[in-house]
Amino acid sequence: MSIDIRDLHARIDDQEIIKGLNLTLPKGEVHAIMGPNGSGKSTLAKVLSGHEDYEVTNGSVSMDGEDLLELEADERSRAGLFLAFQYPHEIPGVSNANFIRAALQARLPEGEELDAVGFYKELYAAMDALEMDRKFTGRAVNEGFSGGEKKRNEILQMAMLKPVYAILDETDSGLDIDALRIVSKGVNAMRSQDRGILVITHYQRLLDYIVPDHVHVMKDGKIIRSGDKNLALELEERGYDWLSEESAA
């Protein structure tokens, strides 16, 4: 059981960003994608989660055998895919609790109501684990949140929605070391045999906290190198340039 990406090509407007990408993310594993700015990492996250600005021109993506590209973004989410945003959106006037409730409600069959008591119990437990103050339940989604609070809120949503596959897009950006530790703890708590996690990051630092099973290097819309966690350390030391030289050679 896995997400399988085969020869994926995607573009925005007339610009091709993903240029023949192959990747398999099995359940039970944590994979990291690293790469320089502009390599297409965030685009990959958006394409996988179904952002309408991006057009897939070739290739396939399946999730546990199901054709992901046939599904709308909301259907992909309900099928078990989660994207933790690099820049989470602010939604004035919609409380955090109501937002998460709406997301859970959308997963229930028509006519069935979410159990409010059970919901809050679970929400508070998840917030405690992420060291989030209870006041965040009543506050508008991400509005006036610090960078770290927004990222923590993404992981809270992930904890509540319990996806089968999660993509974390630059979750470490804008985090100080304490927030990084807490967020990583939250992600690590969700590591499981029944879940695949794809961590997209620019820096090796995050991978000290969320130790990946596999590391992939992305450049110019493709995976150009895969390895174990030591690859990340090597990248930290040598930068990205040696890889392109090698692949060119």
């Binding site: 179904g50 309408e52 973004a73 945003f85 709406a102 997301a103 997963r107």
Partner: peptide, 10 residues
């Protein structure tokens, strides 16, 4: 998109 990415229909 932020809502849809959480499974909430448009």
């Amino acid at each position: 998109f932020y809502f849809k990415a959480r499974g909430i229909p448009a």
